[in-house]
């Protein structure tokens, strides 16, 4: 039998999942995206600085480079995953009404994933020169 100080059942310990039934998944993805965003953010900031004051042609020429396209798609995907993940935690912490909490989490996720798709599709359109 387990010690009285350990209130976790052996089955719960073996499954390794907490009250949310998803274990470390959300926490882990948040950290994973954070880590990826360190170099991506530095790249993004350097890019904006480099493009400052230049026009449409310069932007298209820069974004059309295959590597730039790939990094931009990655940046957008990871950024929006990180954003909705962080917003979910903020909402869970500060919105106490269950219905408002659920509604705002759903809204934030839909908006974030919508913006991500919009940004990625636009990146590809610019890159493919449509």
């Amino acid at each position: 039998m387990f010690a009285p100080s350990n209130l976790r059942s052996p089955l719960g310990r073996a499954r390794g999942l907490g009250a949310a039934k998803e274990g470390l998944h959300h926490w882990w993805l948040q950290r994973l995206t954070s880590l990826a965003l360190i170099p991506l953010t530095v790249w993004f900031a350097a890019t904006i600085v480099g493009l400052a004051g230049s026009g449409y042609e310069a932007f298209v020429a820069w974004l059309s480079d295959p590597c730039t396209t790939a990094v931009m798609v990655g940046f957008l995907a990871v950024t929006f995953h990180h954003a909705q993940s962080g917003m979910q935690v903020v909402i869970e912490d500060y919105v106490s009404s269950h219905s408002w909490r659920l509604a705002s989490i759903i809204l934030v996720k839909f908006v974030c994933y919508g913006l991500a798709i919009l940004g990625i599709v636009s990146t590809l359109i610019v890159s493919f020169g449509a």
């Binding site: 932007f59 298209v60 950024t79 954003a83 917003m87 903020v90 913006l115």
Partner: peptide, 23 residues
């Protein structure tokens, strides 16, 4: 950190607008 995180999430609308406008 949280406040800037929420602000940056709102700011991604501007980021998206930038790329969409180019498309």
């Amino acid at each position: 950190h949280r406040i800037t995180g929420v602000g940056l999430t709102i700011g991604t609308v501007l980021l998206t607008y930038w790329i969409v406008s180019a498309a």
